[in-house]
Simulated assay, not measured.
Amino acid sequence: MAQSVWGYDSDNGPDHWHENYPMAKGDKQSPIEINSKDVRHDNSLGPWHASYDPGAAKTILNNGRTCRVVFDDMFDRSVLRGGPLTGAYRLRQLHLHWGSSDDHGSEHVIDGVKYAAELHMVHWNPKHGNFAGALKQPDGVAVVGIFLKVGKTPKPEMKRILEEIDNIKTKGKEAPFQHFDPSILFPKSRDYWTYHGSFTTPPCEECITWILLREPIEVSSDQMAKLRTLSKTGENEPVKPLVDNWRPLQPVKGRIVRASFK
């Protein structure tokens, strides 16, 4: 089957993904709403640790669906371990989902609260050989999800990424992105929720241990506006703003969300 051009428009958006990617109708799909009353505190969930090599950052790109920073994952340069994970997972890329205005844009929803954006740091388990192999295993991928909340003070953390936006305005544009330590994007608190789910983009493989951080990081409204200047169309096409690249909530179907905190 030819790779269909999925997206977030009415003709190719999340309602249609299952037509080409049947897994999108699976039992362990993401994102979900996290309801505090249903969350189970789990004493056995320890802290997670990330040791990232700033030299592993390679490029930043606009693929027409998100803004992505790509890292060298040929060996264990930048790894995530601990928390709900067994072994070390390698950082491969980070990307964002955001809305057309500041009052929505995150994929996960916490007790009815939507944030302006959600940052995903995608790691894979090298025991499965390569990234493609990891996608086929339930413990193949770990994603740290960080919420972006609009506040008064623009946070310096997002500055590096946003400074590059002008260089990747249109779909297909890529720019060098070197010497970046993504751990600056972590909030102060290490508290998290965790559950087993899927990628929120096709093919929606159900291989992800989610680590969703409780504390959001703050960005300014101007910083969010900058992200919305990206275009989902190519250089010589009419500009269409890249916004609302989030997937709606999926059914929980009996999955338990555990929390590292009370």
Rank of each mutant, 00 (worst) to 15 (best):
I217E: 03
D244F: 10
S189A: 10
S100Y: 13
T233L: 06
T201L: 08
D76T: 10
G7R: 02
H196S: 06
N245K: 10
F131P: 01
Y52N: 10
L135Y: 10
S10H: 11
T59A: 08
L80Y: 00
V144T: 05
K232H: 12
R190Y: 12
L227T: 00
K149T: 15
V69D: 03
G151W: 02
G172A: 07
A50H: 09
L242G: 02
G82V: 02
F261T: 12
H196R: 07
V69R: 01
E206T: 09
L242F: 04
W48T: 06
Q250K: 10
F147D: 01
K159Q: 15
C207F: 03
V79P: 00
H18W: 15
N20P: 06
P31E: 02
E205G: 10
K152C: 13
M23Q: 15
R90V: 06
A56S: 09
P182H: 06
K171H: 10
P216H: 05
K226Q: 15
K37Q: 14
G64W: 05
F177A: 00
S101N: 14
A24C: 15
L135C: 15
S51C: 13
P176S: 09
P182N: 05
D76R: 05
D38L: 11
S78K: 01
D181Y: 03
D111R: 05
D53R: 06
P126C: 07
G197R: 00
D9G: 10
C67K: 05
T233V: 12
I32G: 02
M74A: 13
Y115F: 13
S183C: 11
E33D: 13
V150P: 03
I32H: 04
N35E: 12
W6Q: 06
L91N: 00
K262H: 15
V122R: 04
K37R: 12
A56C: 08
D181S: 04
G26K: 02
R92N: 13
D222S: 14
G99I: 02
H179E: 11
A57N: 01
H104C: 08
L80T: 13
F199T: 01
E164M: 11
F199R: 00
C67H: 05
S4P: 15
K226G: 15
S10V: 14
K136Q: 14
V69H: 01
F71R: 01
V150S: 04
Q29T: 14
W124T: 02
S220M: 11
R247F: 10
K114A: 15
L212Q: 05
I60A: 00
G105R: 01
A225P: 09
K152L: 15
N20E: 12
H16D: 13
S198C: 08
G7K: 02
L249K: 02
P202H: 08
F71C: 03
S101Q: 13
Y52P: 06
M74S: 15
K127H: 14
Y192I: 00
G13L: 04
A175S: 14
D222T: 14
A88C: 12
P138A: 09
S10W: 12
H104D: 11
P154T: 09
S106E: 04
K152I: 12
V5H: 09
D111I: 08
T200N: 13
P248H: 06
P182I: 00
L227K: 00
D191M: 08
I110C: 09
T233H: 09
Q178L: 14
S44K: 11
D72K: 05
I161D: 00
H104I: 04
P126G: 07
V144L: 02
L162P: 00
G82A: 05
G83L: 02
R68P: 04
S221Q: 14
